[in-house]
Amino acid sequence: MRHVISILMENEAGALSRVAGLFSARGYNIESLTVAPTEDASLSRMTIVTRGSEEIIEQITKQLNKLIDVVKLVDLSEDEHIEREMALIKVRAIGEAREEYKRLADIFNGRIIDVTETTYTIELTDSGDRIVEFLAAINADEIIETVRSGVSGIARGEKSLHP
């Protein structure tokens, strides 16, 4: 099962390596990991997407909670939540393709943020699935490069993660 774990942690040097080290040492897999400071500069917020059986996910959350730098943790997938990911996609855009990519970007609520005579760079912020759909809609040969941010997650409604 895929799980989205959201962590509030002390914004200390080395905190990220403690989390990454835990996953590699215990053989848990990480699909994506994003991290940045919050409005309170002493705290970082991290979103980890991982997969595993219920027992493994239970161990992952317990082990993460055990890290001294971890202040709070929630498994977002246990409840209604929103996931967003940003992708930057550079495509070869020549001739007819220019119109087509413009339309495609509009359909997916993407934006063209850089234009040259031969390329477009498209920014797309959406769920991971939608980004995959978008990429599938483009001719693979015409993708020059893609950069994905990994998932950021947040609970719906009043729920929030606080120290």
Binding site: E55, E58, K66
Partner: peptide, 11 residues
């Protein structure tokens, strides 16, 4: 005292 010791190897 450590939740991660509980149900780690045996439920």
């Amino acid at each position: 005292i450590d939740p991660s010791s509980i149900s780690k190897n045996v439920k």
